[in-house]
Write a protein that binds this DNA or RNA. Sequence first.
DNA 1: ATAACTGATCTTATAATGCAAGTGGTTTTG
DNA 2: CAAAACCACTTGCATTATAAGATCAGTTAT
Lengths: 167, 167
Amino acid sequence: MVDIVQRSGCPINLTLEMLGDRWSLIVIRDLMFGNRRHFRELLTHSEEGIASNILADRLRRLTESGLLSRRDDPSHKQKGIYSLTEPSIQLVPLLAQMGAWGRRHTRVSEELSIRAELLEEGGPAMWTAFMEELRALHLDAPVPERSVFAELQAAYLAVVAKNAEAG
Amino acid sequence: MVDIVQRSGCPINLTLEMLGDRWSLIVIRDLMFGNRRHFRELLTHSEEGIASNILADRLRRLTESGLLSRRDDPSHKQKGIYSLTEPSIQLVPLLAQMGAWGRRHTRVSEELSIRAELLEEGGPAMWTAFMEELRALHLDAPVPERSVFAELQAAYLAVVAKNAEAG
DNA sequence: ATAACTGATCTTATAATGCAAGTGGTTTTG
DNA sequence: CAAAACCACTTGCATTATAAGATCAGTTAT
């Protein structure tokens, strides 16, 4: 996450050099599945409690390496709006696999894993649709008919509601 | 990689807590695709040059968290043989996706990315076959007909030979 | 007996992380 | 219009992880 040195030309190694740290993929996840678009949203709504200096550092690194882009928010002179780029949008299948593996082999919570479950069941067709939608949200692509984002959000809220009722 | 604390029940976060560091997946990759089974092999054939203390640390952590298992080598009282477990064998699709992303978005070398290319083209059918084979190599499952390992190795050696000839 | 091998540890240095507080500015509120 | 709240970061400092190289004691081959 830190290395400037290129240790080897192996694709797995190079992916790890860009994303293999504790926080980079967390930031991308929140941007992608939570549609958090500026600093404060990423900071305060963070499930994992990222520290502000680490967040600032990761946003800078990820922007430098082309995985995020930043533009000024016209409604607020200090706010920046962070967006995914095509390379980070193409992380959807990787994040889907991470979610699927985590769901099977770690102690996940029901609420936070429903999206991973849906994404796994939906398979590559759903991933492609989601990527199309992300291109509309983050780049300036046309808005597709299907909203995977809405599907995931609805399922998440349904689980939250169910558990609030039960608990 | 280090955390005992569970920061959140999100499957992506939990996967990162187990594997989200610079070296864990490198070790698993070498065990999986290079069939390196003991310490010295992992240490000296490492493309990326892992330090011995880090390797020892990761082997211990990965074994503790159930991603590797270790048994004594009957031929040498000090040697241990490390094996993948079912959870780490199920990382095949994740590593395939990492390879595919890295191949597209980082500066990979031809020799080291041919396996990722084949694994991407082969798709889920190939991943499943490879996992079957890994269960034979690392657990005590029956040996399947198809050897994805041999296919990958042959393709790799062909590229090495081609480039040696050309260069 | 000796040399090479084995998995691992020790030392020392550098770098990343985490937390709390602070900065200079902007927008909202009373 | 002044005070409060908000905003994106930055700073300082302590803790922890990583890195490179030397070293270690037991094991095996010669």
